[in-house]
Design a protein around this nucleic acid. Structure first.
Lengths: 226, 226, 226, 226
DNA sequence: GATGAATGAGGATTCATTCAT
DNA sequence: TATGAATGAATCCTCATTCAT
């Protein structure tokens, strides 16, 4: 049974775009929001989060600045909502990723099963990486995406724990952190290439993770649970 | 004999800060420049490149904005010169890093010999990573640091070539790119921790690179040259 | 017999909120208007007239901005109507205030009789003072409240005239103006205190008016009329 | 000996326009600041503090918005500095106002001696009243002018204390508050008239204060000190 | 009528850069 | 050279008001 649904639930009751009235927002507004989020995704990818201006997003969405602020109180809220929706979408589409069954597979297969949908999703939604990495100072993740970041990394930790429960929590955290960093770095390369090159980089990333994790969690299937 | 001097020098032809008189710059001016670069390093680290303002740099340096612009035509030039100097300094201090002798060592030792000074240098000069990663858009390195970036990666490629000359150029480039990305990602983690944690992350990074490279270039010493 | 009805009615010819059909407004519309005016009163008191936004008023009233503009053409009209209604209410509740009978009383008693209901009314409706003082530039009363202001002051003038008909019109106007200004100033203090403090300030205001008016209109009852 | 210099010293080490360097600001900058403060005074008087925009002030001063912000971090700082300078100027020009000698005079003379310079000063600098009254919500003085306001009122309290030391502190505070409110209200009238009218209102204000204070502090000279 | 989306000018503020002294 | 004043476009955000549904 998939545990993904419970665990990735970081969609923290989005603070924006929930009007007082319990009624559902009007269709037009919902469309505008999607429009704005699409525009934001586009602008974030093009210029990065920090350099993206709300005016630019509004312009890209073809609306006035005021309209943007009717739906989002500030730039951060846009990013948060965008992150929330992407996370949700990832869960809906690739929820299988983090199931315990996967954790039972031998390393190589597990990497395929886990990474392929993640990579696919990120190729389809390159903003996701932008959001997660949207930090001016390397090593620091912007406040607003901390939750998103944390949730993903927690999943990695859990996955590792499934294979080698005997690791100290510190070591496990470190390995997860490193693996996640590696994943992000690899993703960056993957996203910046296309076609065969992209495929090749996907392989490199898998090789890399395989080489890193094999000594730690072994190449065999994880021990049977319970 | 070290080949570093010829190879890493690509970007040292500083485009800025060369006053009209080609004679050696006055000591005062040189001091000013160093002052400004130090200030810039500090500010870049604190706020990131994009968010760093020239006024903030001037203030940190204890000079007026006008003075800053007497030495640098714009913000970018500061970053470029800073990168140049750091590269130079790295060469001077750790030039031995990329020698062919190192390339002859077994993988584990080579990683120690190559990485330790690089890590040390980056811990002492955290701006370096900031500059290299100063891009807002992941996967794209800001124009100004492309050269710096390229020079470093070229060295990695060469190093790999020393071990396994039979790799196709494409594969070699890919592996170097991946390894370099991995290095940057690991460095980020290293820099964001201190004390024992930092040491632990250094180990993780080495493990990671070892695991990735071992299947490619083997764990033995490189074949004798010539 | 009260003369207030004829005299204070100057501004009651509400210029707004008269829908096309001259028939009595629908009960619902009337309720809406009251809702909006109550909300406006609350917001004006909280933030002042200038800083009060129509959106905030609509929100406070629990309606949409569009609805607000269905009943009032602009922010000013809200204030005007609010003033009108308060004046009306004041007349209805405390209409006795400015009767000639009062004017026959000795100063001290007259002040009690005249001021107490006024103070009570203003404590119950603090917006009233806000509206009257809603001017940004001291000494100038905002256009919209000029009439309200004028009506009140006229009454004071008449009252003074009752006591000392022999004053030149100019002097009488000046004294009324000063007394009214004093009243507003005192009211401000009264409204900004509570409990015993408030009572004490009421006494101070009366003392003040007494001390000011006694030399002018005497402390005895006014001369019998006709 | 005048105690004014020690007492009105609310010029609280102005937080603006004091650069790090201990050198005196350049003459041009000093002139600009004066220009900006003059412009601010003008705009504040015309539109009130709340409605005054920094752009309007800059425009009035004939400079760009950026220039304004070179000298003042925000609108409030302008008001504060303006208040500080006016207070200073008032001290310099009319420091005699609050001396103990005045406090020895019979009420009528004291009022002349104290009020005349204050009125003169306020007629010459109408912003002063605007600043002191710059509040959206009546009865509340904007944070930034609280100090100014407080200092003035304290002086009034002290003055009253000189005449009738036996008053309870509460009563004394109340009387001072009322007298000060009365003064402000009267000033408003005075400033909004000209020529003979103004003179007449000055008389009214004095009458008013006389009538209010006579019963409290008597009309005779204050008891000899010490 | 009611809603809430839409507008766009305007406000505060910042910042890279230039200029006069 | 050094200074610090000056610029003005660009940022984020607000608000009175209008409009489509």
């Amino acid at each position: 049974m998939s545990i993904a649904h419970g665990k990735l639930g970081i969609v923290t009751e989005s603070q924006v775009a929930r009007p007082a009235s319990p009624r559902r927002r009007q269709a037009r507004g919902e469309r505008r929001i999607q429009q704005l989020l699409d525009a934001a995704a586009s602008v974030f990818c093009r210029t990065g989060y920090t350099s993206a201006s709300t005016n630019a997003i509004a312009r890209e969405a073809g609306v006035s600045p005021g309209t943007l602020y009717q739906f989002f109180p500030n730039k951060e809220a846009i990013a948060v909502e965008l992150g929330d929706r992407l996370t949700q979408q990832m869960r809906d589409t690739h929820g299988v990723v983090f199931t315990d069954e996967n954790a039972a597979l031998p390393l190589g297969e597990m990497l395929d099963v886990v990474l392929d949908p993640l990579i696919e999703f990120n190729c389809a939604n390159p903003v996701f990486l932008t959001l997660i990495c949207s930090s001016d100072t390397p090593g620091t993740v912007a406040e607003e995406h901390a939750a998103l970041h944390a949730a993903l990394q927690t999943r990695v930790e859990e996955l590792i724990g499934t294979y080698v429960p005997e690791l100290t929590p510190e070591r496990r955290t470190r390995i997860a952190t490193m693996a996640f960093a590696l994943f992000k770095a690899g993703l960056e390369l993957i996203l910046s290439h296309e076609g065969e090159d992209r495929e090749a980089y996907i392989t490199e990333m898998k090789n890399c993770l395989y080489g890193y994790l094999a000594p730690v969690i072994g190449t065999e299937a994880a021990p049977a649970r319970h």
